[in-house]
Simulated assay, not measured.
Amino acid sequence: MKIFHTVEEVVQWRTQELRETRFRETIGFVPTMGCLHSGHASLISQSVKENTYTVVSIFVNPSQFAPTEDLDNYPRTLPNDIKLLESLKVDVLFAPNAHVMYPQGIPLDVEEQKGPFVTVLGLSEKLEGKTRPNFFRGVATVVTKLFNIVMADVAYFGQKDIQQFIVLQCMVDELFVNTRLHMMPIVRNSNGLALSSRNKYLCPNSLKISENLYCGLKAAENAIRSLVPGASLSRSEVIDIVTQIWAPYIDSHDFKVDYVSLADFKTLVELPAVENTSVQQPLVISCAVYVTDREKPNTIVRLIDNIVI
Score class of each variant (00 low, 15 high):
6 T>W: 02
8 E>S: 15
9 E>D: 07
13 W>T: 04
17 E>I: 15
23 F>V: 06
24 R>C: 10
27 I>S: 00
27 I>R: 10
32 T>K: 08
37 H>E: 07
39 G>M: 13
39 G>T: 04
40 H>E: 02
41 A>P: 02
41 A>Y: 13
42 S>V: 02
43 L>M: 13
43 L>A: 10
43 L>W: 12
45 S>P: 02
47 S>T: 13
47 S>C: 01
50 E>R: 14
53 Y>Q: 09
53 Y>V: 06
54 T>Q: 09
57 S>V: 07
57 S>Y: 13
59 F>V: 06
59 F>E: 08
60 V>L: 10
60 V>K: 09
61 N>W: 07
62 P>F: 06
62 P>I: 02
65 F>H: 08
67 P>E: 07
68 T>R: 11
69 E>L: 11
71 L>G: 13
72 D>F: 09
75 P>A: 12
83 K>F: 04
84 L>N: 02
86 E>T: 14
91 D>L: 11
94 F>C: 08
94 F>P: 00
102 Y>L: 01
103 P>R: 09
105 G>L: 07
108 L>G: 07
110 V>A: 14
111 E>S: 15
119 T>W: 13
128 E>M: 05
128 E>V: 03
132 R>V: 00
133 P>V: 01
134 N>A: 09
136 F>Q: 04
137 R>N: 12
138 G>N: 02
140 A>K: 05
141 T>P: 00
142 V>M: 07
144 T>I: 04
146 L>A: 03
147 F>S: 05
149 I>F: 07
150 V>G: 01
157 F>A: 04
159 Q>R: 14
164 Q>P: 03
165 F>N: 06
167 V>H: 08
167 V>W: 15
168 L>K: 03
168 L>N: 02
170 C>S: 13
172 V>P: 07
172 V>Y: 06
175 L>I: 04
177 V>Y: 10
178 N>P: 02
179 T>W: 00
181 L>Q: 09
183 M>K: 15
185 P>H: 14
187 V>P: 04
191 N>M: 09
195 L>C: 09
195 L>W: 02
196 S>C: 10
197 S>Q: 11
199 N>K: 05
200 K>T: 12
203 C>P: 01
208 K>G: 08
209 I>V: 11
210 S>E: 06
212 N>V: 00
213 L>V: 12
216 G>D: 08
216 G>F: 06
218 K>N: 11
219 A>F: 00
220 A>N: 07
224 I>G: 02
228 V>W: 02
229 P>K: 05
233 L>G: 01
233 L>S: 01
234 S>V: 11
241 I>T: 13
241 I>Q: 12
245 I>D: 01
245 I>E: 07
246 W>D: 05
247 A>R: 15
249 Y>L: 15
250 I>E: 04
250 I>F: 09
253 H>E: 15
255 F>W: 05
256 K>L: 06
259 Y>V: 05
260 V>C: 12
261 S>T: 14
261 S>N: 13
263 A>T: 15
266 K>F: 12
268 L>A: 08
271 L>F: 10
272 P>G: 07
274 V>W: 05
275 E>H: 12
276 N>Y: 01
276 N>S: 08
278 S>H: 03
280 Q>V: 08
281 Q>H: 06
283 L>C: 09
284 V>N: 00
285 I>F: 09
287 C>F: 05
291 V>M: 10
298 N>Y: 11
298 N>H: 12
299 T>E: 15
302 R>N: 01
302 R>K: 13
304 I>H: 04
306 N>D: 06
